[in-house]
């Protein structure tokens, strides 16, 4: 397959994308990953249809109950249905991770592009900024900021985007450095294209493929991160169910019931495993394109 023409023709991308999907699903881990990701997305979208109770429906008579036909995954300390809360928790996991990854990737992409194309002190300065942000242990940084501002969905997304953008910046900078030397870039410069046009129209479309893979790899990282913050009571405020806060309840009542920890961990692991498998298979599928881009 001649993938070097992917970004310049209109017929090729559809064919290429179709092939990529087929190859993704043929790979065992890719198929399992895609299945898990689809499952998580479907749970999030259809949560009210799937769950038998409301996520904040309290029933103190049935607190900390073990799994039963009535409550498949038992209940928490307020008698709320664990299965319902875990299913609704997928919404928070996705509501936090997707915007955070998209925002981080977008900002990192632009800064990386500028750093790689302009070079000089702009590049040195931006690389320094990337290093500075990366030198903070992300979780400690998030804890410190959220402790001052108070927990909210926006703040969590903002901090996660902030801690993630340097890795995208470095990635796109490296790609830009490589593509900057290509003949078509020199040609567009010779034709009088502005630096902005060269960057956005000629370099970016050719540099962006690895960004998607990195973004897919980052989703489980951010999901885990949010769960960690919620576990500390610094995530999405209650009573909104989040996997981290359910694990926290499980930890508090660990001697009374193991079910909250067991099922909470199960959901979290299915999500991280699914997205990791999906991202790794995606990387393998895209790999040909990346290699060819580097060689051309």
């Amino acid at each position: 397959m001649d993938v070097s023409t992917v970004t310049t023709t209109t017929a090729a991308p559809a064919r290429w994308r179709r092939l990529a999907v087929v190859r993704l699903l043929r790979d065992t881990t890719g198929a399992v990953g895609t299945l898990f990701v689809l499952l998580i997305v479907l749970l999030a979208v259809f949560a009210p249809l799937i769950t038998p109770y409301a996520p904040d429906e309290i029933n103190v008579l049935k607190r900390l109950a073990p799994p039963s036909a009535e409550h498949w995954m038992g209940t928490d300390q307020l008698g709320r249905d664990t299965f319902t809360r875990l299913v609704y928790g997928t919404r928070i996991a996705l509501l936090v991770s997707l915007p955070a990854v998209i925002a981080g990737a977008f900002v990192g992409m632009l800064l990386g592009l500028v750093a790689g194309y302009l070079g000089g002190w702009v590049e040195t300065g931006l690389l320094w900024l990337f290093d500075v942000v990366r030198s903070f242990p992300a979780l400690l940084f998030a804890i410190a900021v959220i402790a001052l501002t108070g927990p909210s969905l926006f703040m969590i997304v903002f901090i996660m985007a902030l801690t993630r953008f340097p890795s995208y910046g470095r990635l796109i900078r490296a790609q830009t450095l490589k593509i900057r030397e290509e003949e078509f870039v020199a040609a567009s410069q010779a034709l009088g294209c502005s630096p902005l046009r060269v960057m956005l129209r000629h370099i970016l479309p050719n540099a962006v493929a690895p960004l998607f893979i990195q973004a897919a790899m980052d989703v489980p990282v951010v999901i885990t991160f949010e769960a960690g913050l919620s576990f500390l009571g610094l995530g999405v405020p209650p009573p909104t169910p989040s996997w981290g806060s359910i694990l926290r309840e499980g930890y508090t009542y660990v001697r009374a019931t193991p079910w909250l920890i067991l099922f909470g961990s199960g959901f979290l692991v299915v999500a991280t495993l699914g997205f990791t498998f999906f991202a790794e298979a995606l990387r393998d599928v895209f790999d040909v394109k990346i290699r060819n881009e580097g060689a051309n």
Binding site: T224, L247, I261, S265, L268, V269, T272, T276
Partner: peptide, 11 residues
């Protein structure tokens, strides 16, 4: 790799 350390810790 996919089991977060704090989840491993809890388990």
């Amino acid at each position: 790799i996919t089991v977060p350390p704090f989840v491993a810790g809890l388990l």
